[in-house]
Design a binder for these strands. Structure first.
Length: 218
DNA sequence: AACTCGGGGCA
DNA sequence: TGCCCAGAGTT
């Protein structure tokens, strides 16, 4: 497990690599962000952005999603995969927004998480990006990076990873750190081919040293 | 905890 | 071709 000092070092180095990491999903308002994040589950944001460009031109508010046949909505998001679940969830979500929130997007994590298609990760992202609430959303990148570096344990659940990060990172750095870890995981500490050879964190990274040793042996 | 949804991107 | 992707819901 990394010491507090090592974690500080790691966060600072990652911050130097990606000083202006941000949410890459296109959105003009909380509602569009919410839809975009729900659509982004298990597919890349670049792919989602291709669809949302036309989607947000056509669907401006929760009512618009309910005023077309389900098949039409499915067809509009077909190319991102998992479209049957996502289209149904979005319609259910829009119904809830209209019935319970006057057509607006609720701003707290607890309320967001109750919406169809919105889990802990999506709720954290929307609360953080759209409403400025401190949050660390643990997706596959954040989880992988945290475990490789040794910020948390390999067997930790997603929720345990989130708790550990919140405990070890100052609250006012949560949102920024979240996006930086995602950039670091996406572009450098990649799932398949992490670039350990040119990584500034190699000295403190358990997994990186293991990989380099294995490579030297081969 | 394991399984399913799923087309696109990349090696 | 095969494997993975900025997850969530169900069993």
């Amino acid at each position: 497990m990394l010491t507090k000092k090592d974690i500080r070092f790691a966060l600072d180095e990652i911050g130097k690599m990606y000083p202006d990491a941000h949410c890459e999903l296109t959105h003009e308002n909380p509602f569009e962000l919410l839809i975009a994040v729900v659509l982004s589950a298990q597919c890349t944001d670049a792919l989602v952005n291709k669809v949302t460009k036309d989607l947000f031109q056509k669907y401006k508010n929760p009512e618009d999603y309910l005023n077309v046949p389900l098949e039409e909505l499915q067809n509009d998001i077909k190319s991102i995969g998992l479209y049957r679940n996502k289209s149904k969830n979005i319609r259910k979500l829009c119904e809830t927004l209209i019935e319970q929130y006057g057509g607006e997007v609720p701003s707290t994590k607890a309320e967001l998480e109750k919406l169809a298609g919105v889990g802990r990760k999506t709720a954290n992202v929307v609360a953080s990006v759209a409403f400025g609430e401190p949050a660390i959303a643990v997706d596959t990148h954040v989880e992988r990076v945290s475990k490789r570096l040794g910020i948390c344990r390999w067997k930790d659940s997603v929720l345990e990873v989130e708790k550990t990060l919140m405990k070890k990172i100052p609250r006012d750095e949560w949102s920024q750190t979240h996006h930086r870890l995602i950039f670091f995981g996406r572009y450098h500490c990649k799932a398949r081919s992490p670039e350990c050879e040119v990584c500034p964190l190699l000295d403190i990274c358990r997994e990186g040293q293991k990989r380099m040793k294995a490579k030297a042996r081969a």
